[in-house]
Simulated scan of single mutants.
Amino acid sequence: MSPKSATPKNADYHHGNLRNALIEAGRSALMEVSAQDLSLRYLARMVGVSEAAPSRHFSGIDELLATIAASGYRDLAALRVAIRDSEDTALAKAYRMMRVYVEFAQRHNGLFSLMIGPRIVAHQAYPELAEESNRSFGLFSETIQALAIESGWTHSDLKLVTHAAWSMEHGLATLILANRAPRADTKVAVPKLIDFVVMTLLGAITAGPDHLQSVTEQCAAFQKSAVTRTARKRAKA
C-alpha cells in the first residue's frame, strides 16, 4: 500500500482531528503491513501532514500503536457488551462471547496481531490500552463465570474455568491467523473447527465439577498404573 494515496495532501486537521486521522490511518495500514513496518513518518505521509505533525499528539510510534490497539479492544468490547445485554441464555452468551473473539481476529488480522502481539511489550505502561483490554476481558470473564456458576462450579474454581476458556479462544484465534489450524494436510473447514473447539470447551463447563472429578480420578488411576508397569519392567531388567 502506498501511503501517498491514502489521504489527500493538505487535509484540514484541527481540534484533535489529526489524532483520530492517525489512528484510522494506522488501522488501515495494518490491513496490509505489519506493526513492525509502521512509523510516524509513514503514517504522517498517509494522512498528508508533515513528519513533525504527529508529535503534537503522540510521543512516539509506540504510544500511537498502543492507542490503535486500545481502539481495537474498544471495538471488541462493544461487541461483547451487545452479547452481555442480549436475552440469550448463559450458554448462548458464552458461546457467542468466545466466537466473537475468533471472528474479530479473522476480520482484523493486523489489528488483532498488534493487540496481542509482542510489538507492544508492556500494556500496563499505556493506561488507555490497559483499561480497554481489561474491560474486554472482564466482559468475557463475567459471561463464562455466569455459565460456570449455573453449572455447579464453586467460586474457588471460577478463575480456572475462565482461564481455560480464554486459553481455548485465544489459542484457536492465533493458530488460525498463523495458518497453523487447520493443518495443511487435514481437510477441516474453519467454521466447523471453531464451533467444535468452542462447544467442546463449553461442554466441559456445563458437565460440571463432578464430571471433571471423575475424569481426574480415571487419569490418576491410569498414571498410577503406568508408573507401576514401568517399575516392574525396571525390576525385571
Rank of each mutant, 00 (worst) to 15 (best):
L114S: 01
R180N: 08
N20H: 14
P182S: 11
A122K: 13
S39G: 05
P3L: 09
M1K: 14
R56K: 07
M1D: 12
N134S: 15
E32T: 15
A44F: 08
P3M: 10
A181T: 02
H163T: 09
V100M: 05
P3V: 05
A220K: 12
R84D: 11
L38C: 06
Q124H: 13
A69H: 04
L202V: 00
H170F: 13
G60W: 01
A25L: 10
V198C: 07
R45D: 14
E217L: 12
H170R: 12
L172D: 02
T200V: 07
L202Y: 00
E103R: 10
S133W: 12
D210S: 13
A82V: 11
L22D: 02
M46V: 08
S50L: 01
V121H: 06
R56I: 07
G208M: 04
G48A: 07
A178L: 07
F104I: 01
E63G: 03
V215T: 09
S141E: 13
G16L: 08
P54M: 02
A53F: 03
R74T: 15
F58C: 04
D37T: 08
G152M: 04
Y126W: 14
A29Y: 02
Q106A: 09
R27E: 14
A125K: 14
Q124V: 10
G117A: 03
P3E: 10
Y73N: 10
P127A: 12
K9G: 11
I144M: 12
G72P: 05
E51I: 05
A44V: 06
K93A: 07
E150I: 05
M31K: 15
G48H: 11
Q106R: 10
Q218K: 11
T89A: 13
T230A: 11
K9I: 10
A173S: 13
G171I: 00
L76F: 09
R135N: 12
T143E: 02
R107E: 11
K159S: 15
S156E: 10
L129A: 07
E32A: 15
V49F: 04
L30I: 08
G117T: 02
G48R: 08
H211M: 08
A11D: 14
W166I: 13
S136H: 01
A165P: 05
E32L: 13
R27Y: 01
G138D: 06
D37S: 12
A21K: 02
R74P: 03
D157R: 14
D12F: 14
L175E: 01
V190N: 01
N10T: 09
H170M: 13
S151W: 05
Y126H: 15
M199E: 14
L202F: 00
E32D: 15
A6T: 15
V197W: 02
A189R: 12
Q36H: 09
A52K: 06
I23P: 00
R99I: 05
H211T: 09
Y73C: 08
H163C: 06
H155R: 15
N10C: 08
I205H: 02
